[in-house]
């Protein structure tokens, strides 16, 4: 956790992450700007602010996380202040300020999945990937494997409660998981890497 005197500068600290090698660094190119403009144009004039969230998702999808420079860039695109963007970024747990691994595993730990074994799976996956489970607490709970290939994040309900435990690897949902299935899944993804 950041020191209290630095509660403000903590907002733009660039966190180290071994996952960075799997994502391109943020570059405010003309193409990117064009893409942002499209989002902004979806909202009426004077309401550019509304495009902040979709643009954040676009940036996170491309670069893995929201770096300090991209916050300023987003503010420029949406004609708003950086503190507004920082407020949104720090509000949603799903918006990351640290780069995840190439394969980002989201394990549901809301009640239904937790009861059916999801909670144990988190510990199991951490152990398998060499991730310190202590990293899974705090403001932005996410653990990254030392090789940067994997990251794990406990998340709330994935809206598939009847078939728990549920987890997602990047954007694909896997249901009724157990340790064996996890082993197989990780091996499969390791192949793809």
């Amino acid at each position: 956790m950041t020191e209290s005197t630095d509660a403000i500068s903590a907002l733009t600290v660039e966190h180290p992450s071994p996952g960075k090698k799997y994502y391109p660094p943020f570059q405010p190119t003309a193409d990117l700007e064009k893409e942002a403009k499209e989002y902004v144009s979806m909202y009426p004039e004077g309401k550019e602010l509304s495009a902040v969230l979709p643009i954040i998702h676009m940036i996170q999808g491309k670069f893995g996380y929201i770096c300090p420079e991209s916050m300023s860039w987003i503010a420029q695109q949406c004609k708003c202040t950086e503190i507004h963007v920082a407020g949104i970024v720090s509000f949603y747990p799903g918006i990351r300020t640290r780069c995840p691994g190439k394969w980002h595993i989201r394990v549901c730990h809301t009640i239904a999945c937790a009861l059916s074994g999801g909670e144990e799976l988190i510990g199991y996956i951490c152990e398998k990937l060499g991730i310190d489970p202590k990293e899974l607490s705090g403001d932005e709970p996410m653990g990254i494997s030392p090789d940067g290939l994997w990251s794990i994040e406990p998340v709330e309900c994935l809206a598939n409660c009847g078939f728990g435990p549920n987890l997602m690897v990047n954007d694909t949902l896997y249901s009724q998981m157990d340790k064996e299935k996890v082993d197989k899944l990780l091996a499969e993804y390791a192949e793809k890497a």
């Binding site: 509660a7 403000i8 500068s9 907002l11 733009t12 300090p68 916050m71 202040t81 950086e82 503190i83 507004h84 920082a86 407020g87 720090s90 509000f91 949603y92 747990p93 403001d139």
Partner: peptide, 17 residues
């Protein structure tokens, strides 16, 4: 210049670094 960052109990007033 000022805004609210964080969520829930962690909400705080801040300005951008």
């Amino acid at each position: 210049i000022l805004g609210v960052v964080g969520r829930g109990g962690h909400n705080a007033i801040a300005c951008f670094p």
